[in-house]
Computed example of a mutant assay.
Amino acid sequence: MAYIKMWIFLNILSSLHYFITDVFPSACTPSDSGVTKITAFSGESVLLPCTCTNTQDKPKSFFWETKSRRASKDGIYIDIFSVFELYRNRITLFNQTSPGNVSLLLSDLTEDDQGSYVCLLEKTSRFIDVFIKKRIESTPLSETSLSVLISVPFLVIGGAAVIYCIHRAHKKARMETGKINVENNLDDHNSTYGILQRKYDAEEMYGTIGDRPKDQ
């Protein structure tokens, strides 16, 4: 008789449990589901979101799985914490301070981290596709390039100065050549004038001598 009473009592508790479970939802209601696409850059961090609507609610269970290049060689989902060595010092969870926030922060990304991730929270799955792009860093100017950039203006200015000096020298040479030619012309003119003058004086002197009276 006591055994029958115990059996009835356990069945009532079991029925009550299922009744409460159906009427009252789980303590953690996932805030979102479906597929999320995220693009990140190598060397940076990416936050894979997965939370309860109330971040202070404590989920009964959660799992993170992935089939990224790094973790899965067969293209099937694998528990990310079962290959934790591959992510050592690169994974951060927030559920210790906020139980309902089981988001995963993945740091120091590489191209091998690209792939699909899934958060299994309560009875809901949230899929996240992560695409990793290689960041192209600008190369700083080398000392040689910098010195070339600095020297170019001076070379231009120096070249202009040289051209100006050559132009002035040529101009001065032309002016001096012209002056010499003018002086030479003047000298030639003076010489010609002197010859003509001497000739004229000689002729006049000869004429004077020739015109003297014979009695003298």
Rank of each mutant, 00 (worst) to 15 (best):
F62T: 02
F127P: 00
L120S: 08
F24E: 10
L93K: 01
D113H: 01
R88D: 11
I80S: 08
S42N: 11
G115I: 04
R126Y: 07
D22R: 14
D57G: 09
S82P: 03
F84V: 15
F19V: 13
K67R: 09
F84L: 15
S68I: 08
K134E: 14
D79Y: 02
T92N: 06
F127H: 10
C52Q: 06
L146I: 14
A27P: 06
E122H: 02
I136W: 12
V118N: 04
S138L: 15
K67P: 02
T21R: 14
R88H: 12
R126P: 05
L86R: 00
R70I: 13
Q56K: 09
S82M: 02
Y77A: 08
F81T: 07
T92P: 01
D32F: 11
D108N: 04
S15I: 15
L93I: 10
S61D: 15
S72C: 06
F62M: 05
I136E: 15
I20G: 04
E111D: 14
S31A: 13
A71F: 04
D108L: 08
I38E: 09
G34Q: 06
G75K: 03
I136P: 04
S42H: 06
E111S: 11
P49W: 08
N95Y: 14
N101G: 09
G43I: 04
K60H: 12
S14V: 14
R69W: 05
L146N: 12
R88F: 12
Y77E: 11
L48A: 06
S125V: 03
F62A: 05
S72K: 05
L121K: 07
F84W: 14
G115N: 09
T97Y: 09
D129Q: 03
K37C: 10
T92K: 09
D57R: 08
S15M: 13
K37M: 05
Y18Q: 15
P59M: 10
P59E: 13
F81C: 05
